[in-house]
């Protein structure tokens, strides 16, 4: 079953397994294209495992082959459809753990979080990278706040609850939240 196609990859579901494949780009030289897709696929799988090690639920990786990852299919409800201030606080705790572990997700939206067995899973690490600088963490949180604002009515309560949870699991939470406000003022899309 075909699930999605972003700018970079297609995602299929086969026999209960997610198959994510980075598609070749015709505009890029073949050898350059293959190198980039392979490097990014390996980085994605590595960061998903690393995230789980620091206490963030992510799908289990079954296999990596070239630019294809086979991974666990997380059934459940996207957070987008069920978000409440209480859940937002738990999202904050999870993102705090991720950032404490030096990982930036790169595309934190409420569609990339799944509620399964009362656990919140983070999915799609396609844009994830390693960083412990406040700016990267701030942009990560800023992207999430933007999805709160564009898709959820009581976004102020959600943001407040997120910050509470984020502060519980991440030492530098206050600095990051301060930076998020600066990033918002810049009006720049990142």
């Amino acid at each position: 079953m075909y699930l999605t196609s972003g700018a970079e990859a297609t995602v299929h579901l086969e026999d209960g397994v997610i198959i994510k494949e980075r598609v070749p780009k015709r505009y890029r030289l073949v050898e350059l294209d293959e190198r980039i897709r392979k490097e990014r696929t390996r980085a994605e799988a590595r960061l998903m495992s690393e995230a789980r090690r620091v206490g963030v639920p992510t799908p289990i990786i079954y296999d990596i082959n070239g630019s294809t990852i086979k991974m666990e299919y997380i059934t459940g409800e996207p957070i987008k459809n069920v978000i409440t201030p209480l859940l937002s606080e738990r999202v904050g705790e999870i993102v705090g753990r991720l950032h404490s572990g030096g990982i930036i997700h790169g595309d934190l939206t409420t569609s990339n979080m799944i509620l399964h067995d009362d656990k919140i899973y983070l999915i799609d690490f396609g844009l994830a990278f390693v960083s412990s600088i406040v700016e990267s963490q701030g942009v990560d949180v800023h992207v999430l706040f933007q999805t709160f604002e564009s898709t959820h009515k009581d976004h102020e309560k959600l943001i407040e609850a997120f910050c509470k949870g984020y502060g519980k699991t991440f030492e530098n939470a206050d600095d990051v939240i301060k930076r998020v406000k600066e990033i918002e003022k810049r009006g720049r899309y990142a």
Binding site: A7, E8, K25, Y27, R28, L29, L32, D33
Partner: peptide, 18 residues
Amino acid sequence: QETAFAMMVEVTERALAH
């Protein structure tokens, strides 16, 4: 040229998708 242009075309494509 191949490297620099591919970088910018990639971001342009992402902006289109976004």
